[in-house]
Design a protein around this nucleic acid. Sequence first.
DNA 1: ATTCCACAGGAAACAGTGGTCC
DNA 2: GGACCACTGTTTCCTGTGGAAT
Length: 408
Amino acid sequence: MNDDSLDSIFDKAASGTSLVVKDRRTLTIDYVPDRLPFRDEESKTIAHTLSIILKGSRPSNLLLFGKPGTGKTAVVKNVLHRLSVKGEELGIELTVPFVNAKSANTAYKVLHEIAEKMGINKGEKKLQVHFTGLSMGEATDRILEFIQRRKKLYVILVIDEIDSLVEKNGDDILYNFTRANERISTESFISLIGISNSLTFKDKLDPRVRSSLSEEELVFNPYTIEQLQRILAERTLLAFNEDVVSSAAINLCAAMAGREHGDARKAIDLLRVAAEIAEIERTNKVEEKHIRLAQEKIEKDTNYEVLRNSTTHTKMIMLAVLKSRNGNTGEVYEIYSDICRRIEQEPLTQRRITQIMSELDQLGLITSDVISQGRYGRSQKIRITVPHSTVKEALKEDSILAGVLSID
DNA sequence: ATTCCACAGGAAACAGTGGTCC
DNA sequence: GGACCACTGTTTCCTGTGGAAT
């Protein structure tokens, strides 16, 4: 590629023009305001439940279930956006803090995030919830005190990925919030919307929390391939220049994402990466081959990034699995310990290694089958599921491990 | 039927860090 | 400045497990 073409690429980037994409943002966000992600029934049910708040001024809680990419979050954001507008028109003071429990991955962080979103931390110093230093009880008290003092404030607290919060931290925080209204003596109140990827998470809840939290429940089924096609067609209209994306490409994209639990987010991501590939090729069409290349690229990039950003010990375990002959837990641990010795690092305990391996399994970087060898014990047969070249490439970037890799 | 192996994985505790409160 | 708090990563201790060997 000569300098002229490089210049023209930068010029185009600076002017924002592209042969393919006209609005890149609509391919990177989950939710486009005022466009329901083809979940009319679900949207109406949620709106109906929340309308109680406007009409009758009393709290109501709601639980939503569904696999990732089934539009739960988008629907809630959409409905809440409209509710806020309506509330404003009616002169009702409404606040809708939205917390993702996967990024705020401890109970305390959730409280901190709520305080941030509600603007508590910008107000009176005595009520602020700093990101550490307070007890859980004190942090909860401050939030409730803030709500109490506002006399008539309706809070609709949305906790996304609520199952991951409960799994890691128990349901204490949910207990506190579902009971909070008993402690508020003014007209203010809190309603709770929980969004969960797992249907079974309710079983882990205290019965009192379960009964008040699941006043209303809604299950989001995976999108069908036809629905995915409609979603993609609509995004294509918003994001791409006219006649850029072939209908065959949209169909393939929908079919690929449909195979994996009807994940709309994945479908849109696939389209975005395909568009990037088409742009690099400097064509003005996104076709089936771009979708297939995008699928490969996404898989490779994700694995590579996960590995590259892992700790040195995690990388050493991957290397040990790579080097092991039969992939038994014992053998892998021995090889790992040997690598540690060679680079003069203290090995972690076998218990910790088991834990890291189960994390790698969840990430899909390795798989393990339990095999029983009778009197010779039970073990796991561990295999790497990503191309070995990807693993080596990612490991090479670690200065500590580069030496070990070059010897072998 | 019992023993025994080589683990898996839960629970609790600990160390170190970084923070607030009084 | 000492008491207290939460978080992350780890270790220690312990119980449970499937099936070949005895």
